[in-house]
């Protein structure tokens, strides 16, 4: 829609100008064409109408464009999602993961110490204690993701947020995410495999944080719902690169697919069970993808045969230039 605003604005100006010219020339044109004084009037009326219509069109495009740009550039789900956070609140947001991270690090550090002690003295291990330690370790990736999701949500809704573009090696970004989720998947008896075509994708200009954050959420989601396998595949064309995240989970019913990117939606909502995640991940992922000039789509098959799966496809522009995005 944005691309139509300028031509409409120009057209309005041209119509208004034609109206002014017609008003000036009306007496002369009327005389030449009809040689009667009353015949001037139709041209005067016509000129006046054109002037009013032209000015109206131009004024409407100015106010409409401002409203459109506000909504489309910063809005979440088509609304203007920006808040005017106070300085104190913003400062707190910047430090909140540090504040929340400290007690979490203490708990997880203690859990790992205790596990090391128990491994050194196998006879002293109590099944209940081991179960507790396992549960703490299992929940750690959820805490990590939740903290970064909240950070990104704040950034998306902050007036000062900007999209920093850098030279990124997508293969290395996927390697980092695979490092993080391979042990999580293995713990649940699942496997992650990833590759790129071609095998070295090279460097692209993109927003590193956005890619890492979106794909982390997709892989987290895939590991959560996969049967045994998760696959991540990277490809590119001259203008975009693509990350496909596939899992062999039970799939999502066609009726639920439209809600998949809704804030707070998880499959457990349908079954009225306890949510296994906040339901923020996919909502943020799609908004971040679109804000970065790309998109996130999903395809799923929930048939009970062996073909059931879910595939998310992330596409992001790979040729964002340094000049366009303020990279020094």
């Amino acid at each position: 829609m944005k691309k139509f605003i300028t031509p409409i604005k120009i057209s309005g100006g041209v119509i208004a100008l034609a109206g002014v010219i017609l008003l000036i020339l009306a007496p002369f044109l009327g005389k030449n064409f009809f040689d009667l004084l009353w015949a001037v009037e139709p041209f005067t009326y016509l000129g006046g109408i054109l002037l009013v219509v032209g000015l109206g069109v131009t004024a409407a495009t100015y106010s409409g464009a401002e409203r459109f740009i506000k909504n489309s550039d910063h809005g979440l789900n088509g609304q203007n999602g920006k808040h005017s956070w106070s300085e104190t609140t913003l400062q707190y947001f910047q430090l909140f993961d540090h504040d929340l991270g400290r007690p979490l690090r203490r708990i997880i550090g203690k859990e790992r110490e205790l596990r090391a002690v128990m491994q050194a003295n196998p006879g002293s291990s109590d099944a209940g204690v081991i179960e507790l330690l396992d549960e703490i370790e299992r929940q750690t990736p959820n805490f990590r993701l939740m903290m970064s999701n909240i950070q990104v949500l704040i950034q998306l809704e902050s007036p000062a947020s900007d999209d920093e573009v850098q030279l990124v090696e997508p293969n290395e970004v996927i390697r980092r995410i695979a490092d993080r989720y391979t042990p999580v998947a293995a713990e649940a008896g699942k496997e992650i495999t990833w590759w790129s075509e071609p095998s070295e994708l090279g460097l692209v200009y993109a927003n590193t944080n956005a890619i890492e954050h979106i794909v982390t959420n997709l892989v987290d989601n895939a590991v959560r719902y996969a049967g045994t396998h998760v696959e991540v595949k990277l490809t590119k064309n001259p203008t975009h690169f693509f990350v496909r995240v596939w899992d062999d989970g039970p799939g999502i019913g066609a009726q639920y697919v439209p809600h998949l990117f809704d804030r707070g939606w998880t499959p457990e909502v349908v079954r009225r069970e306890e949510k296994s995640s906040s339901g923020l991940g996919l909502f943020i992922a799609r908004n971040l993808a679109r804000q970065s000039g790309g998109d996130l789509t999903v395809e799923s098959d929930d048939s009970p045969d062996g073909e059931h799966h879910t595939t998310f496809l992330l596409s992001l522009p790979s040729n964002l230039t340094a000049e366009l995005n303020g990279v020094r």
Binding site: G101, L104, F143, S148, Q151, E164, Q166, R328
Partner: peptide, 28 residues
């Protein structure tokens, strides 16, 4: 704890100037 965010950006940009092998990981 700041595996992402503006501090990482500053540090990465500076280290990229020298093409140095620098990476970030969070404490969890």
């Amino acid at each position: 704890q700041y595996a992402q965010g503006p501090d990482r950006e500053t540090a990465v940009r500076d280290s990229l100037k020298w093409d140095a092998p620098v990476d970030f990981i969070d404490k969890l």
